[in-house]
Simulated scan of single mutants.
Amino acid sequence: MILDSLQGFVPFISYFGLAYLLTLVFLFIYSKVTPYCEWKLVKENNPAAATAFCGTLIGFVLPIASAAVNAVSLIDFAVWGVIAGVMQLITFFMVRLYMPKLSEKIENNHISAGLFLGGASLATGILNAACMTY
C-alpha cells in the first residue's frame, strides 16, 4: 500500500524541484532588474521593500502552482514558468511608469509604494494563474 502511494514521488520531486529552481532564478533576475537590492533592504528591516518583494514572490508562485497542475510535461511547465516571470517583470515596469519614483520611494521605506507594487504583482499573479488553466 505504501509503495502504491509513493509511485507519484518521482514526478512530485521533479515538478517541485523545477518549481523551486524557477523561483530562485526568478528572484535572482528580479533583484538584478530592480534599481535597488531587495535582499539588502529586507535585511535592513524596510517594510516597503519586504511588502513589494513578498507580493512579487507570491505573484510568481501562484501561476507556477497553476502551471504545475496543468502542465503536460516538465518542458511545458518550465515554459509557463518563464512566462510567469516575464509577466512579473512587465508588472514592475508598468508600475514604474505609473509611479516614476517607485524605486526611490521603496528605498526610503514609503510603505504605500511597497504595498502598491506588492498588490499589483499579486494581482498579476492571480490573473496569470487563472489564465493558465487551459
Rank of each mutant, 00 (worst) to 15 (best):
E107H: 11
L74E: 10
S112N: 12
S66A: 15
T91H: 05
N109T: 02
M94G: 07
I106W: 01
M99V: 14
A113Q: 00
L117V: 03
P63I: 07
V86N: 09
M87Q: 10
F77K: 01
I106E: 04
H110I: 08
F93V: 09
I83M: 09
V86G: 13
A113R: 00
Y98H: 09
S112T: 08
D76R: 03
I111Y: 07
L89E: 10
S112C: 04
I83W: 06
V69R: 13
S66H: 11
M99I: 12
V82C: 07
Q88S: 07
G118Q: 01
L97S: 14
S103I: 06
A71M: 10
N108M: 09
G81P: 02
Q88A: 08
K101Q: 13
V79D: 10
G81F: 02
I90G: 06
V72P: 01
V79K: 14
W80V: 08
L115P: 01
P63K: 05
G114P: 01
E104D: 14
W80S: 11
L117H: 00
Q88G: 09
V95A: 01
E107L: 11
A120Q: 01
S112I: 12
F116E: 00
V79E: 12
T91A: 12
A84W: 05
G118E: 03
L74G: 10
A68L: 07
E104R: 13
L89V: 10
M87W: 07
G119R: 02
V95P: 01
V69N: 13
P100C: 12
F116N: 00
G119N: 06
A65Y: 08
I75G: 10
L89Q: 08
L115M: 14
F92P: 03
L115E: 06
I83A: 12
A65N: 09
G118R: 00
K101N: 15
T91C: 14
S66W: 02
I111V: 15
Y98T: 11
L115F: 07
H110C: 11
F116T: 02
M87P: 01
A68T: 04
S112W: 13
I111A: 09
N70S: 15
T91Q: 09
A113I: 02
V95G: 03
I106Q: 02
L102T: 01
S103A: 14
G81M: 04
Q88N: 12
N108S: 15
V86H: 09
I75A: 14
V82H: 10
P63N: 07
V69G: 07
I106V: 10
L117T: 07
F93H: 13
I75C: 07
